[in-house]
């Protein structure tokens, strides 16, 4: 699946998007955060406070408890500051 990052999440990870293949025990969006966080130092820094990270699956806001099965694109970003 395609994973995308925005704002300071993108800056901390050092890339805007990538394709990932998480193991089968990564079931929810929150599981995916934990799995990504454990990969390397930059990801650990980006997800150091998982509770503030917002998640979208296929361009819709979701909760960390939402299953990721069938998702094409999952995005991680900070709370929004438009307007």
């Amino acid at each position: 699946m395609r994973v995308r990052y925005f704002a300071w999440v993108r800056e901390r990870i050092g890339r805007a998007e990538e394709d990932v293949s998480p193991p089968v025990d990564v079931v929810t969006a929150g599981d995916l955060v934990k799995w990504l966080k454990a990969r390397d130092e930059q990801s650990d820094y980006a997800f150091e406070r998982p509770e503030v990270i917002r998640i979208a699956i296929d361009q819709m806001h979701v909760q960390p408890t939402t299953p990721i099965a069938g998702a094409r694109e999952i995005a991680f970003f900070p709370p929004m500051t438009g307007g």
Binding site: W8, H61, P78, M80, G82
Partner: peptide, 20 residues
């Protein structure tokens, strides 16, 4: 819009540093 539309602002301070 302010809380749900995916926009993020980064400001440049007078000393040139960027801050989300």
């Amino acid at each position: 819009l302010k809380t749900r539309a995916p926009f993020w602002k980064k400001e440049t301070a007078a000393d040139g540093t960027g801050h989300w």
